[in-house]
Design a protein around this nucleic acid. Sequence first.
DNA 1: ACGGTCTGTCGAAGCGCTTCGACGGACTAT
DNA 2: ATAGTCCGTCGAAGCGCTTCGACAGACCGT
Lengths: 337, 337
Amino acid sequence: MVTLAEVAQHAGVSASTVSYVLSGKRSISTTTRLRVEESIRELGYHPNAGARALASSRSNIIALMIPLRTDMYVPVMMEIAIAVATTARTHGYDILLLTGEEGPDAVRRVTGSGLADAMILMDVELDDERLPLLRGTDQPSVLIGLPSDTTGLTCVDLDFRATGALCVEHLAKLGHRDIAVIGEAPAVYERHTGFAERTLDGLRSRARELELRLLHRPCEGGYDAMAATLARVFDERPDTTGFVVQNESAVEPLLALLRQQGRAVPEDVSVVAVCPEQVAVQASVRLTSVAVPAQEMGRRAVEQLIAKLDGQGSDEVVLLAPELTVRASSGPAPVRS
Amino acid sequence: MVTLAEVAQHAGVSASTVSYVLSGKRSISTTTRLRVEESIRELGYHPNAGARALASSRSNIIALMIPLRTDMYVPVMMEIAIAVATTARTHGYDILLLTGEEGPDAVRRVTGSGLADAMILMDVELDDERLPLLRGTDQPSVLIGLPSDTTGLTCVDLDFRATGALCVEHLAKLGHRDIAVIGEAPAVYERHTGFAERTLDGLRSRARELELRLLHRPCEGGYDAMAATLARVFDERPDTTGFVVQNESAVEPLLALLRQQGRAVPEDVSVVAVCPEQVAVQASVRLTSVAVPAQEMGRRAVEQLIAKLDGQGSDEVVLLAPELTVRASSGPAPVRS
DNA sequence: ACGGTCTGTCGAAGCGCTTCGACGGACTAT
DNA sequence: ATAGTCCGTCGAAGCGCTTCGACAGACCGT
């Protein structure tokens, strides 16, 4: 391995000079700088990460904790993770991938060992056990998701409350009065995942304001689960004409089942989904949907974090405004018979 | 931050003793060991990663390069990544997430800086530009996927050739003579992704041996693309009764379209998919499928790598044997009219 | 009782980098 | 001309750990 000292010798300067050329923390004359840079290139020098971290107590690594479970939103997580990684690189940071498995211990380990300079947490629960740890450390962090108590925390998320409201509004405007919500798997609600509850909250309160009837049913993905759920929905509320779906893997089953039952979309029933764009446009009916802006979320999270690392950040909650795109799956409510 | 020296002082021993307690590289009397461990716990000591890396030239980090593109197999990638991360942790390693974006430079950077001790590469192309670099370094690496020339490389992958063969055999045994292959998106073939070409290879050669007619069509995901592809298939080969699908996002569209055309599955046509279990069981017809053993691949890759790091590994290609699970989407070929 | 062998512990020398203070020289202001 | 400034560079200290050689003391065989 080529070392700083070797570069220095090769360029005929001292080691500290090379270091300053690299960091730009002191002014260096153009001639020396060029000479040093030439030596670096010639020798193929790469600074040793460990030594750097030790001397500067900065690892230039951001830890990203992703949930272990894969029961939901996998493509979204992946998209966020990739956006985080690429954005971080443009700022000179690398990403350390932590799974939720270790739980709070991972936070301790990473903070304690100086492995990472900061962390991003995904899939935050409303009352997440990692939060006290984050508040108790001076290591910057950003959450993707929104816990119930955000004091002292920086969060980035889609405004799911507004998302729910938006879906209801859209259907209301089209004249639908009975709306069914096909939610995430029951487990998601049981563990109090913020986004699921907040969406529901937005749906409910807006429905109340607009005097709509709203029926919420959690639903595992897949056909069988969807079939059972759908049967119960029409059993309880035969007049249901509007659906809001917040479970990617229930979207296609729902469409197929409706078709099978002879209910046309959007003539008889309208469907609004909360899902990635790709799912919305690739479905058998192009779906009216609110997109989850995964890329944007990842990017923003990193930017917030970098700002904090540079001492400029504040503890701030960034809620991205939802956007509803009207496609072929929603239309005017049928006239009541 | 608590340091080794502080722990040593607190326990009344020298720093090196603490270090040996931690590493177990020299024998330590039980009494001292317990005392040191107690101090560690009491002070909440975590070894500094940078210092450790510098002194030992071992970072205990494995780099994982995932592809940037998300045009295929996202859930599979995610599953592999998570399996890699959790397996690595059980061996005391962390995962550094690299996206394909940087390309070969990422390899240089990581090897050069000692950021990671080893690397795992996903989404390897048949003639990948990163391979010469890997061969030219003494940093251990494992590929998930199979390039055309594997000399000097360790690879882990599903045996896609056998997978292709297995699918054909299954359909042949059921009496199907005309088989259509719905492949990955054209782009996947254009960049010579190993698994796609090898599957095709297996399909073709086994079909030839069994004297079946095989028609291969690449296909983007989604309904519209699938509809176009399907039309062309039946146009060219009206007697097609067997389908092999190797594109998750074409599965559901295919089933819906067949249904729509009045072709019953499995009475009129049989469908075999190469996809994750979850997709197979959640589809509208429970699919006969060959599963992509993502977890297993991730786990094996890490284990190979750890073996190499411990100096026991060899350059070996591990091909996991495919397993076909018969479900509801395949059955005897209809009697020719 | 004596050298020889273990066992458990310590001290010290780095690992490769950053960073602080120092310092010569060129320049400005008086 | 002289003191004060600034610029560009250097030397040295030290970041927290690992690891090697050394060395007391316990234990063995003879």
